[in-house]
């Protein structure tokens, strides 16, 4: 085996980044296939572990998602406020904030928060199991780690992010309403009326579809980085870092493609 030439040139760095990126994407695709194969073997589906994961994920992320969503809604109202002030079209505020929250900003920010809270935690948990040989312990007990550990997490993250986004959307609108009154000084009724009049059902549903794909992406990314941890505590920290970064990239990319395909 020949040792690869180490260069510090900009181009060398760039090339290495690309090779690593492709290797990572390849490994994640493989993991995805293994998850689907395990999903097909429905008789091995671990009901207990899935319920535990659903519960853990929901409880862990609900408060932070609600708080984030409320401020994101508020932020969107303030951001549109500048244009409303310039044009005087106060009726547009509900439409602007509602569209932004439902279709783009809501799912993205709730997704990012979810990845920080649940995805990162998942990577840390799996990573710790790898460093302390608990994954190998499952294997010597004849239990398939993908079926037992990964599939329930995958399912739970998709289901939970879906519901969290739906709940988060409501809190975002509420946060927006309060800000509308408190910061912009516009009557809340105008804001709510604006949302109701603009018929945002399609945007709302698109946001939920995004949540499903974001949940799946975060699950695969965080499990991938967790399972390939090496080198003790430092390795776990680094894996968590890689996990949140990759999740963020995945969220922005997936988001773009869904919007383009949807509209």
């Amino acid at each position: 085996m020949s040792k690869p030439v180490e260069t510090d040139s900009f181009l060398g760095n760039f090339g290495r980044t690309f090779i690593t990126a492709f290797q990572t994407v390849g490994a994640m695709t493989l993991l995805q296939l293994r998850i689907f194969r395990s999903l097909l073997a429905i008789k091995n589906f671990d009901y207990d572990e899935s319920v535990t994961q659903l519960f853990k994920i929901g409880v862990r992320s609900l408060p932070v998602v609600i708080a984030t969503a409320a401020f994101v809604g508020a932020l969107m109202v303030v951001a549109s406020g500048n244009f409303v002030r310039a044009t005087g079209a106060t009726t547009l505020i509900g439409w602007a904030a509602g569209t932004a929250v439902f279709s783009e900003v809501g799912p993205i920010l709730i997704g990012l928060m979810f990845s920080g809270r649940v995805g990162a935690n998942n990577t840390a948990e799996l990573g710790t199991m790898v460093v302390t040989n608990q994954i190998d312990a499952l294997r010597v007990l004849g239990i398939n780690p993908i079926g037992y550990l990964i599939v329930p997490r995958f399912m739970a993250m998709i289901v939970m992010l879906f519901f969290l986004t739906a709940i988060g959307d409501l809190f975002a609108l509420t946060g927006g309403a309060i800000t509308c009154r408190a910061v912009l000084g516009i009557d809340m009724r105008i804001y709510w009326q604006g949302i109701l009049d603009s018929n945002l059902l399609s945007e709302f549903i698109m946001g939920l579809v995004k949540a499903i794909f974001f949940g799946g992406a975060i699950a695969i990314v965080s499990c991938h980085w967790g399972l390939q941890v090496t080198g003790g505590a430092r390795g776990v920290g680094r894996a968590v870092n890689d996990s949140v970064v990759t999740s963020a990239i995945a969220i922005f990319m997936v988001n773009f493609f869904i919007t383009v395909l949807w509209t």
Partner: peptide
């Protein structure tokens, strides 16, 4: 291998209980 592992049970040096 999982079939083999059911009949040949390995216990690791460092006890790997699920914490």
């Amino acid at each position: 291998w999982n079939q083999i592992r059911m009949r040949y049970a390995l216990v690791f040096q460092h006890p790997t209980l699920f914490d």
